[in-house]
């Protein structure tokens, strides 16, 4: 994970990263062998809809009823995990695809991150609705994104690589000093 750039305002710190390992997984979640392959290679089970499961190295997120996103937080492990998954899912109707190069990841830190994201996103960001472990796909400032909480004061946002410079500028603009008021 390489930090590309960062922007600091009074309330918010925005960091952009590239080179985060991400693997798209498709398959039949109710299939016992699919579940077994997941637990063997990632030590994580299939997450419930709209949620994310994490351990030290990996996060596994629910994207749709037949799609998962595996995020590899430790550098240099993507190839190995991809191979392992490929072996254990062999012969099954499934997909294992490395999408690391087509995504960027943003970390937004600060107590007002909910207010920042709510400026451009239609989802319910109240504390009781969007909690730790929630994973949402939506759009922020017309860009399709997915995000989940890291801690109470920080959130990870994934977006497509080609939109990332627009999205970064959108975030910096939305975080201008004095433009955020405590709401949630």
């Amino acid at each position: 994970m390489i930090e590309v750039r960062k922007h600091e305002s009074k309330e918010i710190l925005i960091k952009e990263f590239e080179g985060v390992g991400m693997i798209t997984l498709r398959g039949n979640f109710s299939n016992k062998s699919f579940q077994k392959a997941l637990t063997e290679s990632c030590k994580l089970g299939v997450p419930k809809p709209l949620s994310i499961k994490s351990n030290k190295d990996l996060s596994l997120a629910w994207m749709s009823p037949d799609e998962l996103l595996l995020i590899i937080h430790t550098d240099g492990k993507t190839e190995k995990i991809k191979k392992e998954l490929g072996f254990s899912l062999e012969g099954m109707h499934s997909l294992v695809l490395d999408v690391s190069g087509s995504r960027k990841i943003f970390m937004i830190e600060g107590t007002l991150w909910r207010e920042l994201l709510a400026k451009g996103s239609p989802v319910d960001l109240r504390k009781k609705s969007f909690t730790k472990g929630s994973f949402l796909r939506t759009r922020i400032g017309q860009v399709s994104v997915a995000f989940w909480m890291v801690s109470n004061n920080s959130v990870y946002v994934i977006c497509g690589r080609s939109y990332s410079s627009f999205f970064y500028e959108w975030l910096c603009n939305a975080a201008v000093d004095g433009s955020l008021r405590k709401f949630f």
């Binding site: 809809p49 709209l50 749709s64 239609p122 759009r139």
Partner: peptide, 11 residues
């Protein structure tokens, strides 16, 4: 009906 999430027209 798939993710049980309210989605507005723009989504």
């Amino acid at each position: 009906p798939i993710c049980n999430l309210p989605a507005d027209e723009t989504e």
